[in-house]
Design a protein around this nucleic acid. Structure first.
Length: 482
RNA sequence: GGCGGGUUGGCGGAGAGGUUACGCAGCGGAUUGCAAAUCCGUGAAGACCGGUUCGAUUCCGGUACCCGCCUCCA
């Protein structure tokens, strides 16, 4: 079996993935707060963990992997958005507005992540469905002396957990020294964080031992991961910005509630995304959602490929140039596998690259090597010649199966390649004009047709055998010459 | 102020203490009526300063610059 190595943020080193239960490998990814369209940065962990999910399913069997990604549907940003709509004259109750907005946002999220070729997780729990579990966990933390109630809030006592700060490499004292935050007066320690907070009559709330209120942000992941994956599971992930405070606080909650369990064994974090070399932000005007890109006509598969060009632990820069390059490569690769069924197994080298801390760039390099061998069989390296096993198309099938490990060249993502219209009449006409031109030495008519075709995004190939016309980048059927 | 990450050829971007990464673009050639596509060939790197080593782009230390987190954030 392929040995999978992953960089564990906690140890800051590459570690072998040793499943707690080989029959059920479990991973949890922190999902979106559902108040707006997912921006491009939200999509990076989704794609990264989708590749990991595919790898785990390949290595351990699809039945032996459980992937959970939550929806945070209780949050002050959601409340604020609903309140704003009320103030704009929507007379419906807040609860209804919130429900409508979260439902709508979840629908968008599914559509956008589907467009990137991300498989749906096995479970997508919503925080509001796990309020009783959260309350139970908070009660347990209070009982164990790790949390305390104050002015309708319940706070986690960070001083009760000596390991607090271990994941992110911070010490409580250092953080207090550098804190720029206003400190609530009812906190015992400035770093104590909220497990539960009171809701007034306006805001969503649930009855609890501390009065009507709503959960703090971090407790949901502790409660839902326990409910769906158990008290110990294999992988917990998210963007590096979640390392502190979110994941640090999850560890504090879960490990204090269940001191004899491991909680998450490996912590995986992807680095941030930039746009044209700068942080994506609304103020810089370079903020955009996945949907914005899709609407601009950038295929989801192209977005996915650009993500995978960069290792997940490095900052990734989204640029128009990369999107162009990715599109050109994918267009060529799709040409190699048109009408081909995938082989039963991907190339080992591709799996090996991914198993080495999700080296997607290395896997892509390997795909390039195979693609080159398909295009130029005479120069085929020995290892690929063995793989091909004398069957002219076997390498194409292996190539397709290997790309599938990255979620590329799948049927689901192939829609952007325009179904080729019948260009043969144009090809025949061109062939005729060309034959005449060869006799008359006047090539102006054939050149004019060639130019028109090129401008419509058609690649013109004239060979001794005839004329071949292929739709290529920027193909636009409406601009075809009549 | 505290913590963390990064710096590789024109661009993108990996691995490995010593032998070609890879892709895109470029250049030369073949091919073509001219192109395109394809094929053959080819140049180009490791921020800076030290250290370890027979040998470092790869390990260690420092400097500079960039980015992120510390407040909602993937």
């Amino acid at each position: 079996m392929v040995e999978i190595q992953l960089t564990n943020t906690r140890s800051r080193s590459k570690e072998r993935l040793v499943p707690i239960d080989p029959q059920n490998l479990r991973m949890y990814l922190c999902g979106p707060t559902v108040y707006d369209r997912a921006h491009l940065g939200n999509a990076r962990p989704v794609v990264v963990f989708d590749v990991l999910y595919r790898l785990l399913r390949h290595v351990h069997g699809a039945r032996h992997v459980t992937y959970v990604r939550n929806f945070t549907d209780v949050d002050d940003k959601i409340n604020a958005a609903a309140l704003a709509r009320q103030q704009q004259g929507d007379s419906r109750p807040l609860e209804e507005l919130i429900r409508e907005r979260t439902e709508e946002t979840i629908g968008w999220y599914h559509a956008d992540m589907d467009a990137l070729g991300a498989l749906r997780p096995d479970h997508e729990p919503r925080a509001t469905d796990y309020i009783p579990q959260m309350i139970a966990m908070i009660e347990d933390l209070v009982a164990k002396g790790h949390a305390y109630a104050a002015e309708g809030h319940v706070l986690f006592d960070v001083r009760s957990f000596p390991e607090y700060g271990q994941l992110s490499g911070r010490s409580v004292d250092d953080m207090i020294a550098g804190a720029r935050v206003e400190i609530a007066p009812f906190k015992r320690d400035p770093m104590d964080f909220v497990l539960w907070k009171p809701s007034d009559a306006e805001l969503p709330g649930w009855d609890s031992p501390w009065g009507r209120g709503r959960p703090g942000w971090h407790i949901e992941c502790s409660a839902m991961s326990e409910a769906l994956l158990g008290r110990s599971f294999d992988i917990h992930g998210g963007g590096i910005d979640l390392q502190f405070p979110h994941h640090e606080n999850e560890i504090a909650q879960s490990c204090c509630a269940h001191p004899h369990d491991e909680f998450a064994r490996i912590w995986l974090h992807n680095e941030m995304l930039q746009v044209e070399g700068r942080k994506m932000s609304k103020s810089l005007g370079n903020f955009f959602t996945v949907r914005d890109l899709l609407d601009q006509g950038i295929p989801g598969e192209v977005i996915r490929f650009v993500f995978l060009m960069t290792h997940y632990r490095k900052p990734m820069d989204w640029t128009a140039d990369k999107a162009r390059e990715a599109e050109a490569v994918l267009r060529r690769w799709r040409g190699l596998v048109a009408g081909i069924e995938p082989a039963a197994s991907p190339a080992h080298a591709v799996v090996a690259a991914l198993a080495d801390d999700l080296n997607t760039a290395g896997a892509i390099a390997e795909l390039h090597r195979i693609a080159e061998a398909i295009r130029n069989p005479d120069a085929m390296p020995d290892d690929l010649r063995q793989l091909a096993d004398g069957d002219a198309l076997e390498l194409n099938r292996i190539f397709l199966a290997s790309a599938g490990m990255l979620g590329l060249l799948t049927d689901a993502l192939g829609g952007w390649i325009a179904p080729a219209p019948d260009l043969s009449p144009l090809a025949a006409r061109m062939q005729m004009l060309r034959a005449e031109a060869k006799a008359s030495k006047d090539f102006s008519a054939v050149d004019a047709l060639k130019t028109a075709l090129t401008e419509a995004g058609v690649e013109v190939r004239m060979t001794a055998q005839g004329v071949e016309l292929l739709p290529s980048a920027g193909f636009d059927a409406s601009r075809l010459p009549q």
